[in-house]
């Protein structure tokens, strides 16, 4: 398979296959998790304004008092990498074009140099996240193969995307092929790894906030 054939495959059958597995896997996992259901809570709830699942859905993104002092780097690198990732995925002009071709939806893009900057910020934040996982005793203790693997799975699309956009290192078509391929790999594995928190974080926050909200405590 030469570079042109690879490019055609990743843009054609490869993409279709990856999206298919991603969608099927996501639906399967959501049913597997939420199909378990939960028992109704029979204790008479309190009604305190602001204490609810909906509150926790967004409020949990803010660290509670004292946590920035204890784990500031985790929060800052975490914010940097998540915000950067969302921005480069959704606000880069070529990505928006692809989304428009697939769905008909589109929105304004950020200027390319700004996206470049965000990509570098994302990569830097991810390297900090990795360094912290290697050095901070709790993170290292908790880490399994999956943690290192999913880090690489997330890092590669950003790295190859940046190289492709800047025409660096390898021939453009090959870099772009590798970029698309790495995204496909990410899509295929996302439902079956911890990356699935993209979806489950929202119900998890809601369940927690709801349970506590019934007791009248906003968490």
């Amino acid at each position: 398979m030469d570079a042109a054939q690879l490019f055609n495959w990743v843009r054609g059958s490869g993409l279709q296959l990856a999206v298919f597995i991603f969608l099927l896997g996501t639906v399967w996992r959501l049913i597997e998790i939420y199909g378990l259901g939960r028992k109704p809570d029979l204790a008479e709830p309190r009604h305190v304004p602001g204490a609810s699942g909906w509150h926790t859905l967004w409020h949990r993104s803010i660290p509670i008092p004292g946590m920035m002092q204890r784990a500031g780097l985790t929060y800052i690198a975490g914010y940097g990498f998540h915000i950067g990732l969302v921005a480069v995925v959704l606000l880069f002009a070529p990505h928006i074009r692809l989304i428009r071709e697939l769905t008909g939806l589109s929105w304004p893009a950020l200027p390319s140099p700004f996206v470049d900057l965000l990509a570098v910020m994302t990569l830097a934040a991810m390297l900090v996240v990795l360094a912290e996982r290697l050095h901070q005793p709790v993170k290292r203790f908790l880490s399994t193969f999956e943690d290192w693997f999913t880090w690489a799975l997330t890092f590669l699309p950003v790295l190859t995307g940046y190289l492709a956009a800047r025409h660096l290192l390898l021939p453009y078509t090959l870099t772009l092929s590798l970029h698309i391929l790495s995204v496909e790999l990410l899509l295929v594995l996302l439902p079956f790894t911890k990356l699935f928190h993209v979806f489950t974080i929202w119900p998890s926050r809601w369940f927690n906030g709801d349970a506590s909200g019934r007791k009248g405590v906003a968490v």
Partner: peptide, 15 residues
């Protein structure tokens, strides 16, 4: 139950 499954699926080992 569903909350527990959701929690385990969500953990990213951030510590």
């Amino acid at each position: 139950d569903a909350p527990i499954a959701s929690y385990f699926a969500s953990c990213v080992h951030c510590g």
